[in-house]
Design a protein around this nucleic acid. Structure first.
Length: 475
DNA sequence: CTAGGGTTAG
């Protein structure tokens, strides 16, 4: 039986690095080898484990001290002049960067008398990972040589940091102006940028190119393509792309499940999840976010809690996203009080996304009281954001509290807050047309609305009564 | 083991 108590949840752990410390730096094989050679009196540049040790540091979150020690030895051994010295320093730059010490990475880089394109690429990657796209761009512009890796790093970096259009432009510059052939990694970054802009036609061309080059879809590239198709609303293409992947991993599965969850087919999403486990693929925390989302969209409240328990029984610690999904699940199903209590009692604020989803649920269910409470939480989470005013105002309107509705709108104007209208878009013959609710700006608006009326008429006569309100939201 | 890639809640 479904329990809606919100007090019995386990604490929500903050993202911690503790879990990745399973292998302590002291036990790492490369570091051990390095120390053994060092103790035996071997000179630093003759230590065959020097670069492997630095590479190990780069992926051991607790290895800052080890990296610093090796750094000190490198400094003591004198000005680097040989090729292996440049490689060692480059490895040190990378180690510092991956350990979160971007400043130190840059200092080592600045102190290097000789650098290779790899050194530059390491620095570029460090800045991209740090999310400092401006600095990365500067480095990209001033580096003396660039190779495919340089381009891949900056393209993927733009794509990951919300600069999708820049990523696409860079891809064009790389391939057209510089005549460089993209490789698998290039295509991953490009396809994910294309996905964010929603350019289905370009995405299909990219897929065709991938097939022509016979790139494998087993890794990131397959995942990116499936995700591109789902986000472009092409679930059929996403599914067949998924089927064409020879060795599917958890991310291929998760991407497709997310697509069905988001496109009104929660049962398909859940069936896919069952199938995935049957073929022996272990779901991860991200998979469960998509599964809970499917339950949310399908109104499957008790199933959602069942999957939440399953996740915990599999040893996956629930994160804020999972609790957020539960809040959304409860809210959409009309359990607004329970949803609000759960969201309020988490050790970490669930954030803007969840509070607004709850506010939207309050509007749908016409609950003014919880809407007010939620709107105030939302204002704390993200002050001066237009959508909270609009949602609250609309909640009042639905409850016919016209004065409150107007007052909320007025307050929004007084605070100088605007809400950017939500836009939908459709790609026709390669060009993208975007439009808002009740938009009449398109040149062929009249014809479009006439077509819509015809469709509604046909649906009605086919005994499929369209829901007027829901439909108008999508106009 | 001197460099680059992916999935996720409105």
């Amino acid at each position: 039986m479904l329990s809606l108590s919100t007090s019995g949840f386990p604490p929500c752990p903050r993202p911690s690095k503790a879990a990745t410390n399973a292998s302590a730096p002291s036990g790492d094989a490369s570091l051990c080898a390095f120390r053994a050679h060092h103790r035996a009196g071997r000179a630093l540049h003759a230590n065959p484990a020097l670069i492997p040790a630095l590479a190990a540091c780069a992926q051991l979150p607790a290895a800052v001290a080890e990296a610093e020690q090796i750094h000190a030895l490198l400094v003591k051994s004198g000005v680097p002049r040989t090729v292996p010295d440049v490689q060692a320093s480059t490895s040190l730059v990378r180690a510092y960067a991956r350990l979160g010490r971007v400043y130190d990475a840059r200092k080592v880089f600045d102190g290097m008398p000789d650098r290779t394109v790899v050194t530059w690429n390491v620095l570029l990657d460090a800045l991209v990972r740090d999310g400092d796209l401006d600095a990365a761009w500067e480095v990209f512009m001033e580096m003396p040589q660039r190779n495919v890796v340089s381009w891949n790093t900056i393209i993927a970096g733009c794509a990951r940091n919300g600069w999708a259009q820049e990523a696409v432009d860079l891809f064009v510059e790389m391939t057209v102006a510089y005549g460089l052939a993209p490789d698998e990694a290039t295509m991953v970054g490009f396809v994910s940028a294309v996905r964010d802009i929603g350019l289905l036609g370009i995405g299909k061309s990219a897929h065709a190119y991938v097939l022509r080059r016979e790139f494998s879809l087993d890794g990131a590239l397959g995942v990116a393509l499936i995700s591109m198709y789902t986000r472009c609303g092409s679930m059929g293409a996403a599914h067949s792309c998924f089927l064409s992947v020879t060795t599917k991993n958890v991310e291929h599965w998760t991407s497709l499940i997310a697509g069905f969850a988001a496109h009104g087919q929660p049962e398909k999403a859940l069936r896919l999840f069952v199938k995935m486990r049957q073929v022996g693929i272990e779901p991860n925390g991200v998979t469960f976010v998509t599964v809970l989302n499917a339950c949310s969209h399908g109104g499957l409240v008790s199933e959602g809690f069942k999957y939440f328990d399953l996740m915990r029984s599999m040893g996956i610690r629930p994160m804020i996203q999972h609790y957020g999904c539960l809040v959304d699940l409860l809210g959409r199903a009309g359990f607004l009080k329970e949803a609000f209590n759960l969201a309020s009692n988490l050790p970490e604020d669930p954030g803007f996304v969840i509070w607004s989803s709850l506010l939207a649920a309050c509007r749908s269910h016409g609950n003014v009281k919880i809407a007010e409470l939620t709107a105030s939480k939302l204002a704390d989470a993200k002050p001066s954001h237009g959508s909270s005013y609009v949602l609250l105002s609309n909640t009042y309107a639905r409850a016919k509290q016209w004065e409150d509705s107007k007052r909320t709108r007025r307050r929004m104007e007084e605070h100088g807050v605007t809400k950017k209208p939500g836009l939908s878009w459709i790609e026709v013959d390669g060009s993208v047309h975007s439009f808002a609710t009740a938009d009449k700006l398109h040149m062929e608006s009249e014809g479009i609305y006439r077509m819509l009326e015809d469709l509604k008429h046909n649906l009605t006569s086919a005994a499929c009564e369209p829901e007027p309100f829901a439909l108008s939201e999508h106009l």
